[in-house]
């Protein structure tokens, strides 16, 4: 049992290193001030932390309402980290950078 779990984490690390690309989705509903703030904040954090190895997809639910179901979106704006797994969700305008980093698992803890 122990061996397997260690192997699992190893594999995970390998995947992370191999792809090394972050896929982020930002859900918004129209060009609201909150949405704009969230996008600006996200952009800033990504530039600082991810060094160009990321993609941001902005989904406007007013245009495509059915897209919200996949990620169980209730609150807006919501940032979803699709990759690397596991999926993480951060709601709000991302104004608290530290919380965003915790949410994205980007704090240099290890």
């Amino acid at each position: 049992m122990k061996g397997i779990s260690i192997m699992g984490t190893k594999e995970e690390k390998q995947v992370r290193e191999a792809t090394d690309k972050w896929v982020l989705r930002l859900y918004v509903a129209g060009q609201t001030p909150k949405a704009l703030t969230a996008f600006t904040n996200l952009k800033k954090i990504c530039e600082e932390q991810l060094d160009g190895k990321y993609s941001i997809e902005v989904i406007d639910l007013l245009v495509n309402p059915q897209l919200g179901n996949e990620d169980q979106i209730l609150a807006l704006p919501t940032l979803v980290r699709k990759l690397p797994v596991p999926v993480r969700k951060i709601i709000g305008d991302l104004s608290n950078t530290e919380r965003v980093l915790v949410g994205l698992d980007l704090l240099p803890d290890s």
Binding site: K34, L76, I91, D93, N96, R99, G103
Partner: peptide, 12 residues
């Protein structure tokens, strides 16, 4: 799964 940062609403 959810982290809260700042203002949001339930428009979703």
């Amino acid at each position: 799964e959810i982290e809260e940062t700042g203002e949001y609403d339930l428009e979703g």
